[in-house]
């Protein structure tokens, strides 16, 4: 019984600590000293999904900032404009940019600003695959934008949202 009370006391004290330092999921805030910043580097583009209130910069595919623990990330297998594959965290925290990606539906639109040009895509298919470190995508004849993150609803699955560029763009 005493042991349990002791543990409760420790937990209470821990709860008094500032909330910001308790979180370890956002690497930028937990370990600011390790953040790699390339001075003067500007984003290469911006991903805007109004439906989930997302507006996030994209960095060059070879940029150190182009990593999933900091930003929405352009995967190396992308070849814009043919196919652009973007990955980001879901779940909780500031870097979980795609935490509401599952709210998207077919025909929802996504705005991409890339190298100062604006493109509009719309969702054509949504599916989930069992996580194995890869996603399978059918390359279509249209210019594609693929968004992927872990499934927020189904452990061990990867959510994939396939979009194609609107012809009028």
């Amino acid at each position: 019984m005493i042991k349990r009370l002791y543990l409760l006391l420790v937990l209470f004290l821990l709860l008094l600590l500032p909330f910001s330092i308790l979180k370890i999921s956002a690497k930028e805030e937990t370990f600011p000293n390790f953040k790699i910043i390339t001075l003067g580097e500007k984003p290469i583009g911006t991903l805007t999904i109004n439906k989930i209130n997302l507006k996030e910069d994209l960095y060059d595919i070879d940029s150190p900032r182009n990593n999933v623990d900091e930003h929405v990330t352009i995967l190396k297998e992308s070849s814009f404009p043919d196919i652009l594959v973007l990955a980001a965290h879901s779940g909780k925290g500031k870097i979980a940019y795609f935490q509401e990606l599952d709210h998207l539906n077919i025909n929802d639109t996504i705005k991409l600003t890339y190298k100062n040009n604006n493109y509009i895509y719309y969702v054509v298919s949504i599916w989930e695959e069992k996580k194995d470190g890869y996603i399978n995508i059918n390359k279509e004849n249209n210019y594609q934008l693929v968004l992927t993150t872990c499934s927020p609803n189904k452990d061990g699955y990867q959510l994939i949202i396939n979009c194609v560029k609107k012809e009028s763009n």
Binding site: V68, I83, H89, Q99, G133, I135, N136, I137
Partner: peptide, 18 residues
């Protein structure tokens, strides 16, 4: 017709300590 198999990083954000 191209079937692409693209490696993806772990995109699951870790749970907070709290």
């Amino acid at each position: 017709l191209k079937d692409l198999r693209i490696p993806v990083p772990n995109t699951r954000a870790e749970t907070s300590l709290f």
